[in-house]
Structures are given as C-alpha cells and as structure tokens.
Design a protein around this nucleic acid. Structure first.
Length: 285
DNA sequence: AAGATCAGCAACCGCCTGACC
DNA sequence: TGGTCAGGCGGTTGCTGATCT
C-alpha cells in the first residue's frame, strides 16, 4: 500500500516534470525498434533518466502513434457522455471504446468541460439562462470547442487503434461471455507489438472504405495492415446518421451488458462504425 | 500595458491487481 | 500461502497560454 516503486525511488536520480523533445525522441525510437517488454527496464535501455511509470504514461498519453489528438467531435462527446453514464469514471474502459483517445485525455475533457456542461443542463440551472450566465471569457473564446466541434471536421488522419481489452476488460468479458480470454500478458505485449502490428489481428470489423484508408496509412508507415473485415451488425448509414446514433446510444445506455462489446467511430470523426464484440473479433482473426 | 482569471493539458501520486517466486 | 514486484488506473495538481478587466 502506497509502496514507492523501486524505479521511482529517490536513490535513482530520475527526472520529473515535462518531457523534452530529446527524451520523447529517445523513448519513441526505442519503442519503435524494440517494442515494450518491461517498462521498468525501458528508461535504462533507452538512456532516459525517468522511471518506468513515467515512460509508460508518456507513451500512452502522448507518443503513441495512434493518438489522433485535437478536439473531440460532437459524436465523441455524445459517446463519452453515454459511456460515462453506463461505466462511471472507468476512463480506461471508455478510452478503449474511443479509438485514438487516451484515458487521460478523456478524463481531462470530462473534468474540464462535460461535467460543467451537464451541471448546467440540470433543471435548476437549465431554467433559461445557463448559457448567458457563462463568463464572457468562455463565451468569447474563439477556439471554444462548443463552436468548433460542430463546424470543424475531426482530424482526418486517423490511425486504427484496435480495441485491446485491459485485464479488467478480460475479466468482465470472460464473466459475461463465459469464455476464456487472452491473458494479461497479451495486453502488455500488445502495447509493444502495436508498432509491429500483430495486435491488429484482434481488430473488429471496420467499414470497407475506412479499412482501405487505414490499410493505406498503415502501409505508408510500414505497419502490417489491418485485416479487412467487412462484417457489420450495424444498419447505420451516413444518411441515417443522426437517428442511428440516437438509437445506438440509447441502446448502449439502456443495456450495460452491451458495453462488453465493442464499437468504433469511423476515421472521419463521424458516426460509429459496426458493432462487434471482442470475442467475435477473435473468431474472425 | 499589466495583472487577474480561466481553461486546457501534461504529469505526478497513491492505490489496486495480477503475476511470479 | 504469503510477500514482492510491475503494470495499470483514477484522482489530483501544477504549469502554460489565452482572454478579460
């Protein structure tokens, strides 16, 4: 309890605070070349004066090549609200269902914007002027996501990020499906193997055109292309996007067991793609 | 122009869990 | 079977830049 990690102890001189570009470069190139086998050994191997936890955090939240960064789209925002309603503060589980977003990013987004937003929508304050009560500092902000999310398209570059269940997801999924899943060892290796691509084998179905884009992008970066799976259990079309999302989100919130499955936003930052459970994904791989 | 305020974000901290011995 | 270790997670803090007064 509260044990200090050996790698973070005072005895070893470890740097703290913001990462320098050089440190980023060292870490990224090391992981690109060797992957991740053991975080605690990475600082030494990469020539960094950081603790393993810090390296992991930096990689997961910032350096990972599949992070899309940039503003959250309206659909992502809706999804986060729905998922939070169903899952609570399980940021990692929410992040697992939002490709290209880290749990930290989602957590920050929630704490900074959505919680406030939802509070404003509550009956007491919803009485009319929640918006007008907002400080001018917020109202006038030109880059207010409130405006941008609806007008700006989400980042067009989107590298596929397969849903790699966390150990806790495995437990939950196994409990729900009565199946034996991959061990947690697979998870740790998945982080490192992401660069090389094998984890893609568990990637669920994606729309054919999106898959083609992703594969092209993957080919550019030398990553093994995602297997093209076109099976879809969603009847959603671009035309029916709005109503489809409504029903989709409602179903998701109404039926928490639904969340043991998986779903994706497509690469255009738009609507969700097909739904396919992690286990189905395994069946296809 | 300068200080105050605020939002966004990166990173740290403490704790929990599973694997290993 | 219990202890130790490492990975992972959620909560929180502190810094930075933008905006307002």
């Amino acid at each position: 309890m509260g044990r200090v990690h050996p790698c973070c102890s005072e005895e070893k001189k470890v740097r703290k605070g913001l990462w320098s570009p050089e440190e980023d470069e060292r870490l990224a190139s090391h992981i690109a070349r060797f992957g991740v086998s053991c975080w605690s050994s990475i600082p030494e191997l990469a020539g960094l004066q950081r603790c393993g936890k810090s390296c992991r955090l930096r990689w997961m939240n910032y350096l990972r090549p599949d992070l899309k960064r940039g503003r959250f789209s309206q659909h992502e925002e809706d999804l986060i609200i729905a998922l939070h309603k169903a899952l609570g503060n399980s940021w990692s589980q929410i992040a697992a269902r939002l490709p290209g977003r880290s749990d930290n990013e989602i957590k920050n987004f929630w704490n900074a914007r959505l919680r406030k937003k939802l509070r404003q929508k509550e009956p007491s304050s919803a009485s009319s002027t929640a918006g007008s009560k907002e400080p001018a500092a917020i109202r006038n902000r030109p880059n207010s996501a409130e405006d941008d999310d609806r007008t700006k398209p989400a980042p067009s570059v989107f590298t596929p990020y397969p849903f790699v269940p966390s150990p806790r997801d495995h437990v939950a999924a196994a409990a729900a499906a009565g199946a034996s899943g991959a061990s947690s060892c697979d998870d740790s290796s998945a982080v490192g193997s992401f660069v090389a691509g094998p984890a893609m084998a568990t990637c669920p179905a994606v729309p054919a055109d999106a898959a083609a884009d992703r594969n092209a992008a993957a080919a550019d970066s030398g990553v093994t292309p995602t297997p093209s799976l076109t099976t879809s259990t969603s009847a959603c079309t671009d035309d029916a996007r709005g109503s489809c999302d409504d029903g989709f989100l409602r179903a998701m919130v109404d039926d928490p067991s639904f969340l043991f499955g998986d779903f994706y936003l497509d690469g255009d930052g738009g609507h969700h793609g097909p739904i396919m459970s992690f286990w189905e994904g395994h069946a296809f791989s």
